[in-house]
Nucleic acid binder design. Sequence first.
DNA 1: TCAAAAGTGTTGCATCTACACCCATGG
DNA 2: CCATGGGTGTAGATGCAACACTTTTGA
Lengths: 233, 233
Amino acid sequence: MSNLENKYTNLSVDCVIFGYRNEQLNVLLIKRKGSENFSKEQYALPGDLLDKKDSLDEAAEKILFNLTHFKGIYLEQFYTFGAPRRVSNKADREWLKASRKIPGERVITVAYFALVKVEDYSADYRSNDGEISWTPINEIPQLTFDHNQIVEKAHAYLRANLIDKQIGFELLPEKFTLSELQSFYETILNVAYDKRNFRKNIKSQTFIKKLDEKVEGQAHRPARLYTYEPDKQ
Amino acid sequence: MSNLENKYTNLSVDCVIFGYRNEQLNVLLIKRKGSENFSKEQYALPGDLLDKKDSLDEAAEKILFNLTHFKGIYLEQFYTFGAPRRVSNKADREWLKASRKIPGERVITVAYFALVKVEDYSADYRSNDGEISWTPINEIPQLTFDHNQIVEKAHAYLRANLIDKQIGFELLPEKFTLSELQSFYETILNVAYDKRNFRKNIKSQTFIKKLDEKVEGQAHRPARLYTYEPDKQ
DNA sequence: TCAAAAGTGTTGCATCTACACCCATGG
DNA sequence: CCATGGGTGTAGATGCAACACTTTTGA
């Protein structure tokens, strides 16, 4: 990380990075170990102070690249959080102090929303801030600052745009069966679809292509694989 | 306005304030007169540097209140703009200098989106920055900084959410005829609806109430008035 | 041959679209 | 009595929801 002179001390960019694994929606969190400066373990969203020479989008890309070493990941700004008393509790202030940011100073966060295919994601990389790990959306612990609220808003945004913006395919593997796709939508939207109606619906979408491949090695009828190909213009 | 010590010098809040009049969508712009410090007239969105003690929402409310002296107006944050070279052209830098903000410094803008009923709005108030005036959306001149881009994004946001979020009624007068409502949607969404189908549709919406009142004094059959009453919970 | 998931159609109901004429008023 | 915009219904097409059995594979 560059030194403080190049940073806006009160403006940070944080990312809610979603992945889908074990039939669950997961979020990438950073776990900061306890130390002499601040007692408890803390969980937070990946983020950093904004570098003066970066655009907001570039800052978010850098955060993402530092964690996953991937580029070209789906990334979108979704909201900016800035209540004056965001940085209020003691543990948060201790951490700000320990990490040489300005304690007691209000932090304004431009929040981004990223979608990654977990099977492409190499878990070897570590943040400078601490260990990173996938956490199922409904097992998220208390996070620093107002990060829980940020995750909540990102989650709402994901659900609201999952179908219309076709962003679900950023989370799914390249090839998937229709049963996987159905279960994916059902999990994230918390609904149930009728199997036949779901398939009828999907097959009427031009951007889902049937492949000449089937899943192998299962003790039942093999499922046909499909892939996502966005429509031109 | 408070003095500079209380402000974040690089973080501003700007508002795109929409109104509907003369069958057109309008935006409230500020016109700054030419002076010895900067030559041309300039048009800009109402906005201000963020006060350290305000939340983002409060800052937007203040900007709005200073212009319209109204509270309780529909207001929503919609995007944050922050490319490093936003403040690049000469006239913009001259104005920044003249208005004692920091020249050459990047400005990050949290943009808000407001909807007002123009007939409630008293045009007597003036900004400290200059004259304010309603400008039809398709007659907007070149604005300072990237404000044209901000208006464009706000406009897209309005169209995308006009129906689902029922926000159109924030722009319309309390009482309206179905023909007015139809023409309003058609103007903003740039579509055409069939009159009978439109009315059938509207009448199936629970939040539109028929009044016992009619328009008077027109040289044709008087139109029934309707009003908007959001559904409970 | 059994277990387990894949795959497949039809029917009724609700919703959307297209379309043309009479009504109430002021001038 | 005329001009002007207000107001109304029906029929066909399309889209959505409900529902159960056969197929293919590995063990």
